[in-house]
C-alpha cells in the first residue's frame, strides 16, 4: 500500500469486520454471570485505607455498581436470583463517603423492597439509616426514613411513630412529622395515613427518583380506591346475572360502566375470575401493588 488513504481504508474495513463478527457472536453467546458476583475486596475499611485520597470517587463507583446491581437483579428472571451483594456495596459506599446522603436513603429503599423486586431486608435498611443518623445527627431525614421503613415494610406502627417523633425533634424538621407520628399511633397502617405519608414524601423528596416513587405509590392508592368501587359493581353484576362478566365490554354493554376502566398509568384493570375481584394488570407500571394495602373485601 502506497498511500495513507489506503491504510485508513483497510483499517476501517478490518474494524467494520470485527464489529460484524462481534454482532454475530453476541447473538448466540452470553457471558457467564454467577448469581452472586465475586466481591474481591470484602472490607470497606481496607478500601478506605487504600483509596489514596480518592475515597469519594471510589464511593461513587460503588454507588453506580450498587444501582446497576440492584436494577439488574430486579429485572432478572433467574431462579437463583438474590440481592446478597447489595448491602456490602452500600456498606462500601457509606464507609468511603460517610456524607453520601442518597446512598443511605436510596439504599434503604432498595434494601426494604420486598421479594421478588428486592431483598426484603428492612432490618438492614434500618441499620444503614442508623449509621447515617449517627454520622449526621442533625439530619432529620434519616430518622424519618427509619420511621418509614417501620411503617411501610415492617408494619410496626408504634416504632414508626417513635422514629417520626424523634425526627420531629431535630431543628429544621418539617412540622408535619409530629402529626404523622400521632396519626400513626391512632390510625396505624390504614390507606389514608399511608397516602398522607407518600404525599409528604412527594413534597419533601430532594430527588427526582424518590419523587417518581412517591407518584407511583400515590397512583397505586388511587387505583386501590377505584378497584374498591369496581369490585362493588362486579359483585352486584354477579348477583344479578348469576355469573361474573366475561370482560369489561360486557359491563359497558350492560351500561354498568361507561368505558373500559383504566388505571392511573393508562392500562386496563383486569377481572380475576378465581378470586372474583378486580386487579391491576401485571403489565401496568403500577404492578405489583403494595401487599399490605388490599382492596376492601366483599
Amino acid at each position: 500500500m502506497r498511500s495513507s488513504g489506503a491504510y485508513v481504508a483497510v483499517i476501517a474495513l478490518l474494524l467494520a469486520f470485527a464489529v460484524a463478527l462481534q454482532v454475530w457472536r453476541d447473538r448466540g453467546w452470553q457471558p457467564y454471570e454467577p448469581a452472586t458476583p465475586v466481591l474481591w475486596l470484602q472490607n470497606a475499611d481496607t478500601m478506605l485505607r487504600i483509596s489514596l485520597g480518592f475515597d469519594s470517587l471510589i464511593a461513587d463507583t460503588y454507588w453506580i455498581r450498587a444501582v446497576v446491581y440492584y436494577g439488574r437483579q430486579r429485572l432478572t428472571e433467574r431462579e437463583d436470583k438474590n440481592f446478597d451483594l447489595l448491602y456490602p456495596f452500600l456498606d462500601f459506599v457509606t464507609t468511603l463517603d460517610p456524607r453520601f446522603k442518597t446512598a443511605y436513603r436510596f439504599g434503604a429503599v432498595f434494601l426494604s423492597e420486598p421479594s421478588p423486586g428486592g431483598p426484603g431486608r428492612p432490618e438492614l435498611a434500618v441499620k444503614l439509616l442508623e449509621r447515617g443518623a449517627e454520622r449526621s445527627p442533625h439530619e432529620w431525614e434519616y430518622l424519618h426514613d427509619i420511621g418509614f421503613v417501620y411503617f411501610w415494610s415492617v408494619g410496626d406502627y408504634a416504632q414508626a411513630a417513635d422514629w417520626y417523633e424523634r425526627a420531629s425533634r431535630i431543628a429544621g424538621a418539617p412540622i408535619w412529622l409530629k402529626s404523622t407520628a400521632a396519626a400513626m399511633l391512632v390510625q396505624g397502617g390504614d390507606r389514608e395515613s399511608a397516602r398522607t405519608i407518600w404525599e409528604h414524601m412527594l413534597e419533601s423528596a430532594d430527588d427526582e427518583w424518590l419523587r417518581n416513587e412517591a407518584r407511583t405509590r400515590l397512583a397505586q392508592f388511587d387505583a386501590l380506591d377505584v378497584i374498591d368501587r369496581l369490585n362493588i359493581e362486579l359483585w352486584r353484576y354477579k348477583a344479578r346475572a348469576g355469573r361474573l362478566p366475561q370482560g369489561w365490554d360486557e359491563l359497558v354493554r350492560a351500561r354498568v360502566l361507561r368505558a373500559v376502566p383504566l388505571d392511573p398509568a393508562g392500562v386496563a384493570y383486569e377481572i380475576d375470575p378465581v378470586n372474583e375481584n378486580v386487579t391491576v394488570s401485571p403489565t401496568s407500571p403500577l404492578w405489583p401493588m403494595p401487599a399490605r394495602f388490599k382492596p376492601v373485601p366483599r
Binding site: 469519594s56 470517587l57 464511593a59 461513587d60 454507588w63 453506580i64 444501582v67 446497576v68 453520601f100 442518597t102 436510596f106 430527588d207 427526582e208 427518583w209 424518590l210
Partner: peptide, 14 residues
C-alpha cells in the same frame, strides 16, 4: 446518568 440522582456530586467527584 447511570446513577439514581447524585449526578452533580459524581460530576464534581470525577
Amino acid at each position: 446518568q447511570l446513577t439514581a440522582g447524585q449526578d452533580l456530586k459524581i460530576i464534581k467527584d470525577l
